[in-house]
Design a protein around this nucleic acid. Structure first.
Length: 581
RNA sequence: GCUCCUGUAGUUCAAUGGAUAGAACAUUGGUCUCCGGAACCGAAGAUCUGGGUUCGACUCCCAGCGGGAGCGCCA
């Protein structure tokens, strides 16, 4: 067996090869190599059980035959257990060689790169302009950024596109309110976006109370959409004010975009869509609106996908179609990933079906369309946090609270630290905690927003990961050696804590693969937590700086590799690490 | 009404159809001459109910019960 980065796929290859020369096993045999429970070994092949059953053979006998057919190797010990599991226990020398070979950061990055790079557009964050971002926006922003980093890490070309809600009906109301109050957008006070949001709220209540106001607001919207210079100018300023407020949050979170085209960008690109879909008989006119039905689909045979309203106006279905077209034509995207709330699943399913038919009719390859959806953040009433009812927590307040709390903790631990350094650390710790709170759980789950939860800093949290990293840095400072300069050693991972830590390192490629396949960052988060736990345990049981240089160098090597994987992993999640904390 | 998601320790969450369901918080007992105690080691504690498929089910299928969401002109 070769020492490959992804041990499970190498093992799979070796077993299949052996199986091909093995009586009773054919080409369709799937070894089902899995990460094994610690009690049984490092990897296990489960494929015998089902295969033996199907072919009417004895699984244990078959397993024995397969083991006999495996090439001689001093890298593992095999055994048959239970009804026919094959367990592989990797040798200490294998552990050492793997860690030695894939140790340094650049090597790890290189090994993680795909051999088929794709151009992938990630559509995420996408707040509405004229409003502040609130906690409901955090998931798309954080998950999207993390996926972007994950895919970039593997060598894909990622285009981050912030699909702003900058052309909605909210502008009618807002423009009406601005004019009624004779507001100057150049003089909105210290917090312009908050002023705009208040103005919008004010306008909403006016239009609700008085039909005359409502019709005035509608007129302002129509004027805007018809290109009225005054309204267009106001709209542009509102967009600028909004962008600048978004930008300050993105900057804190280390999020950036390549484009922020938004819905307004597509407003003059919808006509051809109607024409094409009509031409291909994909849509029909129904109750005055242009809609798409999918007769083959149990739900969408009757549930319409409205692409043009009965008043002739476009809606988000239209712009989404135009957006796909733009990303395909202009960017030649291989894949588009939409990171949105799960409540939009029907919409995207309909969108994807429609695109598929449209492109098939025109005989062009459709990009792979993926809806990466996440659960709703709920208020205490178990309903989605909404802008209208009550006061939703502003995102900036959450982030500020997080850094404030972290700052108190830092000061408590290190009272003599300079304030600028305190703030620097507090920012990484507090924002890391918020981020990890979201990324460490399966994105498809809803959760009730709770300060304590978002700001937790004990247990399975970002500060725990950061603490492990800081301790490793501390070891290297004390040892006065660089993580990449560790001399070779003849001592291999032997003690329980050494083996357990080494073993955890080996699984990184598998976790990375799973995270990518599912586009679920919590797999990576869970792994990093386990790795940090394994390290902490190792740290307590095995002193690194010992007399015996062989032992010390092996332990330093384990520390160095842990450090690299922790740094790579946290970087993908967007969590910053510290050398001291 | 139709469709989708969801139900795991007291609480918040894990678990590509695999062996004795794994953590955190809270509760509780230890470690305190240690390279950083933001830590480590231990105890106690859970798969909504009933069927089915399978050698094997938290996982897949069916039914029921509980929670949530979507379903024609918001996004």
């Amino acid at each position: 067996m070769k020492i490959e980065f992804d041990i499970s796929s190498e093992l799979d290859k070796v077993i299949r090869e052996a199986a091909s020369n093995c009586e009773g096993l054919r080409d369709d045999f799937d070894p089902q190599v899995r990460q094994a429970d610690e009690r049984f070994g490092d990897f296990q092949a489960n494929g015998m059980l089902s295969y033996a059953k199907q072919t009417g053979q004895n699984p244990r006998e078959l397993a024995q035959r397969l083991i006999d057919a495996l090439p001689e190797s001093n890298f593992w010990e095999t055994s048959i257990a239970g009804p026919g599991f094959i367990n592989f226990v990797l040798s200490s020398s294998f552990y050492y060689k793997w860690i030695e070979k894939f140790g340094n950061s650049s090597k790890l990055r290189q090994e993680s790169r795909t051999d088929k790079p794709r151009k992938i557009v990630i559509d995420f964050s996408s707040p509405n302009t004229a409003k502040q971002m609130h906690v409901g926006h955090i998931r798309s922003t954080i998950i999207g950024e993390s996926l972007a980093r994950l895919l970039e890490f593997q060598g894909h070309e990622v285009i981050r596109d912030n699909h702003l809600g900058d052309w909605g009906t909210q502008f009618g109301i807002l423009l009406y309110a601005i004019k009624r109050e004779h507001i100057s957008l150049d003089d909105l006070g210290p917090d312009p976006i908050a002023s705009l949001e208040n103005l919008y709220r004010q306008g909403t209540s006016w239009t609700k109370e008085d039909p005359v106001c409502l019709s005035q607001a509608r007129k302002e919207l129509v004027k805007l959409q018809n290109g009225d210079p005054e309204n267009l100018n106001l709209w542009e300023k509102i967009r600028e004010i909004s962008m600048s407020s978004f930008h300050s949050i993105y900057k804190m979170l280390g999020v950036h975009f390549d484009h922020s085209y938004g819905e307004s960008f597509y407003r003059d690109k919808v006509e051809p869509i109607y024409e094409k879909l009509l031409k291909h008989n994909i849509c029909i006119i129904d109750e005055g609106a242009l809609v798409v039905f999918h007769p083959e689909h149990k739900r969408f045979a009757k549930q319409p996908f409205i692409i043009r309203k009965s008043d002739g106006a476009s809606n988000y279905a239209t712009t989404d179609l135009a957006t796909v077209e733009f990303r395909k034509k202009e960017w030649n995207a291989d894949q588009i990933i939409y990171v949105t709330d799960g409540r939009q699943r029907d919409h995207f399913e309909q969108l994807f079906l429609t695109v598929k038919k449209w492109y098939a009719a025109e005989n062009v390859d459709s990009p792979t369309l993926s809806h990466v959806w996440f659960g709703t953040i709920l208020g205490e009433d178990n309903k989605a946090i909404k802008t209208r009812d009550g006061q939703p927590v502003k995102l900036i307040d959450l982030l500020t609270e997080a850094t404030d709390r972290a700052q108190n903790m830092v000061i408590e631990k290190k009272p003599d630290l300079e304030l600028s350094e305190v703030k620097k650390r507090a920012k990484k710790i507090g924002l890391g905690a918020v981020r990890y709170a979201d990324l460490s759980q399966d994105r498809t789950l809803d959760y009730v927003f709770a300060w304590e939860k978002m700001l937790a800093m004990q247990g399975n949290t970002a500060p725990y990961l950061q603490y492990a990293v800081a301790r490793i840095h501390s070891i290297f400072r004390k040892a006065e050696i660089e993580p990449l300069d560790i001399p070779p050693t003849s001592y291999f991972p032997t003690s329980e804590s050494e083996r357990k830590l080494a073993r955890k390192l080996l699984f990184f490629p598998i976790v990375l693969k799973q995270t990518t396949k599912e586009l679920k960052p919590h797999f990576l988060g869970g792994y990093l937590y386990e790795l940090a736990t394994e390290f902490s345990s190792f740290y307590n049981q095995s002193k690194v700086m010992v007399e015996d240089k062989n032992i010390m160098h092996l332990r330093l090597l384990l520390c160095a590799r842990t450090l690299h994987l922790m740094e790579i992993g946290t970087e993908i999640l967007g969590i910053e690490t510290l050398e001291e904390m």
